[in-house]
Design a protein around this nucleic acid. Structure first.
Lengths: 336, 336
DNA sequence: CTGAAAGCGCTTACAG
DNA sequence: CTGAAAGCGCTTACAG
């Protein structure tokens, strides 16, 4: 049986109220009793019961992080741990703990969200979900429960979110290809379900148009953020008889697969076909050839997300906030 | 104000006890009232307050996961997310949530541990720490608080732990080198602070000895699990005039750095010097040359850790459990 | 500066 | 089958 506030009170010959106030650093406690009580707490190895405290306060020092994707897969992407680190570092500084959970379907997401939000276990939520349409967000908004989503949602005006400027990411990458004389640039991994990819696609199109290059639909291939389809998507493109001189993949893992496919078919990268990815995973520089990519600053995405969340949780005034984290093109040998 | 059990009770014209029993699926509730109450709960959008429930039960459905290493760094290793996935998948099935926190120092670890254990917020702990000496473990054991550590600790007889057979990992790798005619095999990244690496080193020595090859201390280099020292450690070795014909790195990231160093100096891998790592990170196969490694089955490590923890939390009988997760040598071109 | 009392939302013997 | 009551460990007006 752990020692409680009452045990301390008895030992100190004061009321539980006084002990509670001492813990809370209430100024109306005399220096004498304060010292005596602190001493006893040390001696008796007292630790406040957070659960009881939370119940009395009707609030906890816990935030929920919900990851979209199956438990087996969701944490796998190199991208995720960095975001989590960012969130954790902010949380740590403010004394918050992180409750984490991953979901497979929109339905599971909804369940997780309501568990976190309605059960009082959590006082704010970070949604690591970049679906275009996010119904959990709607629900949270209606409850007026503090939350922020990482990845710009469709209904961006109604929710707090943090993201890169993904149109710009796509634009910068494409322009980089064009500046290096590429004209037939394929785009791998556009997935209309995710704003990330559709935004990047938009940037790609914009850059082409600005340079008077027609957008050719046959150069654009849908996909998902899974490694082995990089190979598959590339193969699909080649099998259709398409021969681009550049390939922009929405993710480094896709790019790795694509390059492997190209090399197997006897193409040289970058001489015949330049390839770039996004996310700047640690091993880009060890790859052969080292992969041009975009550093999306995942750590900052996470840190910013936590900042927005805290603001939202503590501020008197309602507001819809957003944060755009700068991304940076990292040119390596795969494109030049 | 969220709706409570009392609101439901009033609406249903029963006592809160009855509602509570209904939620708990207590068989002594008549079918009629049960249905009526469930209907009302739906209608009124009732969600149980977990905090209150936990306080009454003196137990939560939350387990704590403590990661050693700074918040900025700890989550970065490809190894970590997989373990976390394993834990999460087990937790998800049993309805547990995961509270995660990362610590920098032994002192912070101690603080986190006592917060989790003493504050009643958590009902079990997974320590993702492979330090030889783990003082938090001692403390938890004294409190008789359920926990399991991932990575065999020094005091292995006193705690629940899960790990690979790392002596065997080192042994298998070394034997693989010997079988391919290597005789001067260097060992990179032994760090006496971690049982993982010292165990692997032991396996390495054992394999050498079994094959009547003398263990040469100058072939063994200390290090840490950080990427850029792979290059540094290798360089250090070469600068000392050592010319091995094989290099075993305790981690793939170390191996990548080592290979880059070797290639810069004009050595061919594997022709001149074979190199292998451990952990089988996803990109091993894309590396040039593809990296021989050991799949440690991180997901299973996590899943098993959760299993042991649950057993420990729920079982009537005290016991010290451990689980050895099989590791598998994956031979790729970097060694043959 | 300190205490008695009520309350946070739930559970669970005890009684009927 | 159902209810009244006490309790989980803390907080916080209210009173003195």
């Amino acid at each position: 049986m752990p020692v409680t506030i009452n045990d301390i009170a008895k030992a100190a010959n004061v009321s539980p109220s006084t002990v509670s106030r001492t813990i809370a650093n209430n100024p109306r406690i005399s220096e004498k009793t304060r010292e005596r009580i602190f001493k006893l707490m040390k001696e008796m190895n007292y630790h406040p019961n957070m659960i009881a405290r939370s119940l009395a306060n009707k609030s906890t020092k816990i935030i929920g992080v919900i990851v979209t994707g199956s438990a087996e897969k969701a944490f796998q992407h190199p991208f995720f741990p960095e975001i989590l680190s960012g969130i954790a570092s902010g949380a740590y500084k403010s004394g918050y703990k992180i409750l984490i959970s991953s979901v497979n379907s929109a339905q599971e997401e909804k369940k997780a969200v309501s568990e976190y939000a309605m059960s009082g276990i959590t006082s704010g939520i970070v949604l690591l979900a970049s679906r275009v349409r996010n119904t959990s967000a709607d629900e949270l908004r209606q409850m007026d429960f503090p939350f922020v989503v990482v990845g710009r949602p469709e209904n961006e005006c109604d929710v707090n979110w943090v993201d890169n400027d993904n149109v710009r990411v796509g634009h910068d990458l494409t322009r980089h290809f064009l500046e290096n004389g590429r004209r037939e640039v394929a785009f791998l991994g556009a997935s209309p379900e995710f704003t990330v990819t559709s935004d990047r696609l938009e940037g790609y199109k914009k850059a082409l148009t600005e340079n008077d290059i027609p957008v050719r639909d046959e150069l654009i291939v849908n996909g998902k953020f899974v490694d082995d389809t990089g190979y598959g998507l590339m193969k699909e493109l080649l099998d259709r008889g398409i021969r681009p001189d550049g390939v922009i993949a929405c993710d480094d893992l896709l790019a790795f697969g694509a390059i492997r496919c190209l090399q197997e078919k006897g193409f040289r990268v970058p001489e015949d076909i330049a390839v770039a990815g996004v996310n700047n995973v640690p091993l880009d520089e060890y790859f052969d050839p080292p992969l041009t990519s975009v550093d999306v600053n995942a750590f900052s995405l996470g840190a910013k997300a936590f900042d927005l969340l805290i603001t939202n949780m503590t501020s008197e005034h309602r507001s819809i906030d957003r944060a755009i984290v700068p991304a940076r093109l990292i040119v390596r040998k795969s494109t030049v």
